[in-house]
């Protein structure tokens, strides 16, 4: 088991948002977490990545059998947890390639592996950029600065390709993307999908799941998973709307 979330209660600013969430993710699997606004999707992503504003009230999160919640966000990252942001941050003055090499080498250092010098890294980066069809011009530009919404999301997937996480959480990666950008991002994710990693897609809409087919769909409402199933559940949800599961949440 790569990730095991057990009866997780968590929230922000003293407000409980996740109210007993359970989730199991194995290597090689793609899980979709769906749910209406305010259901706790984003809280789950942030708690897994270690956002300091969110507090865990009770419950357990095991990653490769170890307590994930004990680790700082940067330690989680170096251990192979990655989160693609809904709103990636701009880092002026630091080029994409400089930033990615810093991040990559921190991971290498952590695992006692050899760091790459700028030339070696550049070759590595060029190879990875093919995953999201990214022009090497983007390597020289400051991280996310002046990038369009689609370019930012592609850049997130490029970072994922470079850092090769074991667990990637894509937080509303589909939001604000036109269909072409969505296709490129989805193809990138599909290329990175492997028996050695797992992907959690957090999304409001079924649309993304036409391109990245999940093994499991979990529907979140009011801080709990109220429905689980295979890929068809997403279609059913699309058809019936979230009121369908909201009903399930209150009847539980």
């Amino acid at each position: 088991m790569l990730l095991e979330v057990k009866d997780l209660h968590a929230g922000i600013d003293g407000k409980e948002i996740l109210k007993g969430l359970n989730l199991q993710v194995r290597k090689g699997e793609v899980h979709a977490i769906m749910g209406p606004n305010g259901s706790g999707k984003s809280t789950l992503s942030k708690v897994l990545a270690g956002h300091p504003s969110y507090e865990v009230i009770s419950g357990e999160v095991l990653y490769e059998g170890k307590n994930l919640l004990d680790l700082e966000p940067d330690e989680r990252a170096r251990e192979g947890v990655f989160m693609a942001f809904q709103y990636p941050v701009e880092v002026p003055g630091v080029s994409n390639s400089q930033f990615l090499r810093l991040a990559y080498n921190q991971k290498m250092l952590h695992h006692g592996l050899e760091e790459l010098d700028p030339l070696e890294f550049n070759d590595y980066l060029k190879e990875k950029a093919k995953v999201v069809d990214m022009d090497p011009q983007f390597f020289k530009r400051s991280v996310n600065e002046g990038f369009s919404g689609g370019e930012k999301k592609r850049n997130e997937i490029l970072q994922m390709a470079v850092l090769e996480p074991k667990l990637a959480i894509l937080d509303e990666t589909d939001s604000g993307l036109d269909i072409d950008a969505l296709r490129i991002v989805a193809e990138g994710v599909n290329t990175l999908r492997s028996p050695d990693n797992a992907i959690i897609l957090v999304t409001h809409y079924q649309r993304l799941l036409n391109f990245i087919v999940p093994d499991m769909v979990h529907v979140l409402a009011n801080g709990r998973i109220v429905k689980e199933g295979g890929k068809d559940l997403a279609l059913e949800l699309e058809e019936k709307g979230y009121d369908w599961v909201k009903g399930a949440a209150s009847s539980k």
């Binding site: 966000p73 990636p88 810093l102 921190q106």
Partner: peptide, 16 residues
């Protein structure tokens, strides 16, 4: 905080 968090999630240590 959001900007800092972004960099941390890329594995950069806090001070860096």
């Amino acid at each position: 905080e959001e900007e800092l968090f972004y960099l941390l999630t890329r594995g950069l240590p806090d001070s860096l």
